[in-house]
Amino acid sequence: MADNTLATQTRTTQSDTDAARAEAALLPPVDVIEDAGGITLYADLPGVPKDKLNLHIEADRLTIDADIALDMPEGMQPSHAEVGLVRYHRAFTLSKELDTEKVGAEFSNGVLKLRIPKAEHAQPRRIEVRAA
């Protein structure tokens, strides 16, 4: 009996993750650049107005969710589509050196720029060598 319950539970979780993955979304292309002070992330999200962009940081996970909103005339029939979905989704795991409290975000012309500084203790330091 106990085995059964466990099996059912496992199956439920499995189908839950499947459902979440089945919801199709575009994977926005990103650039990630690291310098001494932190990380800069650029993401291309064309067609997304500011209010449809959702950034979420929970523990060490950064999630970008965005919906495309284009103004289309009524009754438009698509004849060729290279962007075939209306949602972007991408998630990253952030390392512990990054300070998630101080994330700066800018969004203009469909490009998201995220600046995540490194925590104080992870900043590079120059160690003076003194002649003895």
Partner: peptide, 17 residues
């Protein structure tokens, strides 16, 4: 993305930034 209505042809170019 390209689409059309009876009155127009609509072209969307996804060129961010």
């Amino acid at each position: 993305n390209i689409g059309g209505t009876a009155k127009s042809v609509e072209i969307y170019a996804f060129a961010p930034g």
